[in-house]
Design a protein around this nucleic acid. Structure first.
Lengths: 356, 356
DNA sequence: ATTTACAGCGTGTGCGCTAACGCATTAAAG
DNA sequence: CTTTAATGCGTTAGCGCACACGCTGTAAAT
């Protein structure tokens, strides 16, 4: 039984035997360490391919553990921002780090204030002053304009992945996030059902400008473009000037619009809108659709004030970022350009099963 | 840098040194191999706890790979049944098996016809005739009555997990599936929104009786119990007698009920209902809500005939079954009694992101 | 002609853990 | 009291892989 299992194992030993060379030579071929004549190298490569040899990752990692470790820098907003939204990807990152602990994967955080350019720049420059040599980077590039410039300063030998948002022209390994436009469309179809295809709806745009959130609103708006029975209005909340901007803008919206049937909020501050609706228009039948499974959102979802939350698997996003870096850098696996998360539709009836 | 990493590693060596014994002795204590005096055993255990020692799983598995392998039996319906539904968990099982390949995890399938007791019994008895000694079992206990009797015949040293459905009184390690009743309620709230809280709706019960599906219908029905503007009717489709039972029953439903606003299908054969509605009542505005991401369901979802599909992460279920067995049996980790999957709400706007 | 550089190859050690082996010592059985 | 079995503990050979090390032989550089 065991013998059988072992018999199926293809080891360097076997390859060496078949190729009539030492394991050292096989090793050199596999890792392109040179010092092997073209002829023998080709022979060995052929045999490797024929046998479909896959290194035993256990032995490999165990062996490498002596010499190699991986330090990944994480440049993300402070976890407490956006209603503690950023705790979610951070949670995923930490989970992955723990799992990959045996492979000596470490994370070094560089946190910044999402609404301050200076803070972002500061965090960015700290990356290069890190005492530990970094092997990879996770970047959440909010404040698109600023990020776009800074991203160019990253040396070409330091690979990075984008989390949540991304910069179009860049050499990132991959982008892990969500199809924002489509996500807005999804929200719109849900809203359409909720309001039975008639009435006035509002969407709240977020300042400072954020392409990611902008796209969500675009997707939402476009859906309603040729629905004649639905009136669409959009408003701006400037978070930079006022932490409670979403709450305050909502008061105006409620007051000014009659026949208001729904509000769409493209980010995790949805709870502020819910809070305001609860205070000023509880029984008005305003349907709120928003984003992300932060605690306060869940609270108002369960209360029935928020009807749908769309979740982009924030935790999984962080988790996959670390894994992607590890896979690419340590295992030399290729990555997809984009890794798009599912857009989970959350209601008060299924929320309880989304807590990991 | 590396030295630092290694310094943090707690090894058997270190424990042995601290306890002033050999690694062999430490090993015996850890694995309860006996042959250690109570006194030294206690001392060693204390040290292990103090240091919070965790075995290096790489080295452990590498070492064990010489002698140990794990064979898991999988007792599930033929993958092609229920509109190829069962391919999904099987896919997950295979994926997990591949990932755990390095730990020498094998799977042995025992497939049966979901609608034939004889077939189920046959597959069940084959388990005990397996030439490979089985270390664990995955069981999907459809035909609850029959399964209930057979389950008792499993020897106590053969652990098993339930997939998809479960038998209340049993010694299973865990049940991986879905909260069926709640899932029906979720479907009901969606239906309620779709039909704007008025009209007649139908649910299709499945024969032969299946507790799992029955619970979904119960959850669905209970939601509408005190909604006076909604009339609920239920029908039975006997799949045992007729593979196209769902299609045929739908024809009757459409004909007999007027003001029909929605049909709820508690299983993956939803596409048959959609097919029928498409043929006989395309523009009637009948809203269909069903289950599971099988190909044909997705087809009608994208066409807009099925409005919502609820997915219970079928692939992940299979995946987690193997992992749970491995974790419990190989790594001696405790398992939760129940592992409940999220109930994903799928529409034509987010379906594309649920394909793994 | 002599040094340097490096291709070409084998060997050996260690990553942390498991489990078999071996040798004492002690308890139980005859 | 002897024989056998059970207990207590140390030692060590792998598991498959990576890589430093060391030894040749050849070609280029000096």
């Amino acid at each position: 039984m065991c013998a059988n299992a072992l018999k199926n194992m293809i080891t360097l030993q076997k390859i060496a035997q078949l190729a009539n060379v030492s394991v050292g030579t096989v090793d050199r071929v596999i890792h392109n360490r040179g010092r092997v004549s073209q002829k023998t190298a080709d022979r060995i490569k052929r045999i490797i391919k024929e046998l479909d040899y896959k290194p035993n990752i256990l032995a490999q990692s165990l062996s490498l553990s002596r010499t190699r470790e991986y330090n990944f820098g994480v440049l993300v907003p402070k976890p407490t921002q956006d209603g503690r939204y950023w705790e979610l990807p951070v949670k995923g990152i930490n989970k992955a780090r723990e799992e990959l602990n045996i492979y000596r994967v470490n994370t070094i955080y560089f946190l910044y204030d999402k609404y301050s350019e200076i803070s972002f720049k500061k965090a960015f420059t700290k990356i290069f002053q890190s005492e530990k040599k970094l092997d990879g980077l996770i970047i959440t590039p909010v404040l698109s304009q600023t990020a776009q410039d800074l991203i160019k300063k990253i040396p070409p030998d330091l690979p990075y992945v984008f989390l949540d948002s991304y910069i179009p022209q860049s050499n990132c390994l991959t982008y892990i996030g969500e199809e924002s436009y489509q996500s807005g469309k999804l929200a719109a179809t849900l809203m359409d059902i909720l309001i039975n295809s008639r009435g006035t709806i509002a969407a709240i745009k977020v300042r400072p400008k954020d392409n990611h959130l902008e796209d969500r609103v675009k997707g939402f708006r476009d859906y309603f473009k040729d629905k004649t029975n639905v009136t669409f209005k959009s408003f701006k909340a400037n978070r930079k000037k006022d932490v409670r901007a979403f709450y305050n803008i909502t008061r105006d919206i409620i007051k000014d619009i009659d026949n208001l049937k729904g509000i769409f909020v493209p980010n995790s501050t949805t709870y502020q809108i819910a809070e305001c609706v609860k205070s000023y228009a509880l029984d008005s039948g305003i349907n709120i659709i928003g984003y992300d499974l932060v605690e306060e959102n869940i609270f108002y979802l369960k209360k029935g004030i928020i009807k749908f939350l769309i979740s982009q698997r924030s935790e999984l996003q962080g988790y996959m970022c670390i894994y992607s870096l590890y896979k690419n850098i340590a295992l030399h696996e290729k990555l997809k350009n984009k890794i798009m998360m599912p857009m989970d539709i959350i209601t008060k009836d299924n929320i309880d099963y989304y807590h990991v």
